[in-house]
């Protein structure tokens, strides 16, 4: 059963949760019999579900419903900053598909997202398996691993910028002094190379979260299962593949999904490191939409670039939802 130390904390949180519930149902319930009636009501799953979902729905409706609808409206309007927009149908999207920079950004977004996510998953899984061992300084290593992910992105990206700097790159300094190169490498001077650097920084930043979340997942795996598999003669790789992976798959899927969405919409990192340069070769949707919407003040056009992602994300999510539900 659950650890004794956490029980009280949880009970407390739960009572807070419970106190919300009556508020939403109280109206219909007579004063005296409330506990039982309420109890009975909450035994019905759809009512309980409504009560549990209420706070989330309230916040999301208040804060996101209007912006969301407006965002879609922007994408089909010719809105610019300071002027009311007119409906223009799909014209913005038509402009996009004829825009070479947009197409490049489109391609970049996918390359960036898929490669970075795959690397984060692989390395994060590796890290989680390593951290799942007992070793000296375990605590400090686990804490240290999290650092890249905690440093405010804009600032850590500046540090990377300095490390990739054409003049001061520490990598170049090292490689030259070791004698591996005689001419400096221009890390951000070429579209492909710069994209590689962006992916590297993204992986560096995002991997710890994969590691820690997957580590949490690994901890739920009952060691008895491993022992049983070992007795049956499964080697470490097979045990990982057949026992561990299926068990942590639901968590893994969610982490991958969220990471993908976040990477799809990534903005800060590219904005600081290359701003889409050199020659617009590293733009992704996030940065290009920002340039158009903010710098050129064309909110409508910018929104349409942002929204171009939507169908792809939606497809991923529908698949995910179906997958998670299926495992019931």
């Amino acid at each position: 059963m659950a650890d004794q130390r956490i029980e009280p904390i949880l009970a407390e949180r739960a009572s807070a949760a419970a106190s919300v519930v009556p508020a939403s149902v109280a109206v219909a319930v007579p004063e005296a019999r409330r506990p039982t009636r309420l109890g009975q009501l909450l035994e019905r799953e759809h009512i309980l579900a409504g009560a549990l979902l209420a706070p989330t729905l309230v916040i999301l409706t208040l804060f996101i419903a209007y912006p969301f609808v407006l965002g879609i409206w922007l994408a089909v309007s010719d809105k610019v900053v300071g002027r009311p927009g007119n409906f223009v149908g799909l014209q913005n999207f038509w402009v996009n598909v004829n825009d070479t920079i947009f197409l490049r950004a489109f391609q970049n977004t996918f390359v960036y997202t898929f490669i970075a996510t795959a690397l984060k998953l692989a390395l994060g899984m590796g890290a989680a398996l390593l951290l799942n061992h007992h070793f000296r300084f375990k605590r400090i290593v686990r804490a240290g691993m999290l650092l890249p992910w905690i440093v405010p992105t804009v600032l850590s990206t500046l540090a990377w910028q300095w490390m990739f700097d054409a003049t001061f790159s520490v990598f170049n300094w090292t490689l030259m002094n070791v004698g591996l190169i005689s001419k400096r490498i221009l890390w951000l001077g070429d579209g492909t190379m710069a994209m590689g650097c962006l992916i590297l920084v993204n992986v560096w930043r995002g991997m710890p979260f994969f590691a820690i979340t997957l580590l949490a997942g690994l901890q739920t795996v009952n060691p008895d299962l491993h022992e049983a598999a070992e007795i049956d003669g499964a080697n470490a790789w097979q045990r990982f593949w057949r026992v561990t992976l299926p068990l942590i798959k639901p968590i893994m899927m969610v982490v991958v999904l969220f990471s993908m969405i976040a990477t799809f919409a990534d903005f800060q990192l590219i904005y600081v490191l290359t701003r889409g340069g050199p020659y617009s070769s590293t733009h992704v949707f996030g940065t290009y939409a920002y340039e158009i919407a903010m710098r050129a003040a064309q909110l409508g056009q910018g929104a349409s670039i942002s929204l171009s992602l939507f169908p792809f994300l939606l497809a991923v999510i529908v698949f995910q939802l179906w997958y998670i539900r299926r495992s019931d």
Partner: peptide, 8 residues
């Protein structure tokens, strides 16, 4: 200087 393409 060849670094220029990457410069800000």
């Amino acid at each position: 200087d060849e670094g220029g393409l990457a410069w800000d």
